[in-house]
């Protein structure tokens, strides 16, 4: 489990999510693929926090709590992204409901009014 392997897994997940966003026609599955991309990014953040020490830890000065906590920046980043993704998923589905109730189609291929 080296850092390259974890980053590779994160990149593959991101790429699968990207493919899903582009190739699916229902808005709900597009949002699902977006969530996959979010997860790929957060895995990378946590991997960085796990494997790469910060400058304060590397410098050989006596350790302070702040230096040790700086190794957890990736974890804090992860918590923020998870919270934002949760709020965003809720709003996205509220939008989808509103669209559905207003009679709009939720297939993204039908949203072609501005084409040509």
């Amino acid at each position: 489990m080296t850092i390259e392997n974890v980053l590779l897994v994160s990149a593959v997940l991101f790429a699968i999510g990207a493919y899903g966003v582009v190739s699916r026609s229902s808005l709900i599955t597009v949002i699902m693929s977006l969530e996959l991309m979010f997860n790929g990014v957060v895995i990378a953040a946590v991997a960085f926090s796990r494997f790469t020490p910060s400058a304060a830890l590397l410098s050989g000065d006596p350790l302070t709590g702040e230096a040790i906590r700086s190794a957890l920046t990736g974890h804090a980043f992860a918590i923020f992204i998870i919270s934002v993704a949760a709020g965003e998923a809720a709003l996205a589905f509220a939008l989808v409901f509103a669209m559905y109730r207003a009679g709009e189609s939720i297939e993204i291929t039908d949203a072609s009014q501005m084409k040509n």
């Binding site: 190739s23 699916r24 229902s26």
Partner: peptide
């Protein structure tokens, strides 16, 4: 509406190519 399933879209191959390119760049 989703009971009919989610149809694949026209630009699938291009999308797959773009995804593979992103993967290659990051990897």
């Amino acid at each position: 509406d989703v009971k009919a399933g989610s149809r694949p879209v026209q630009g699938r191959l291009v999308g797959a190519a773009v995804a593979v390119l992103i993967l290659a760049a990051v990897a």
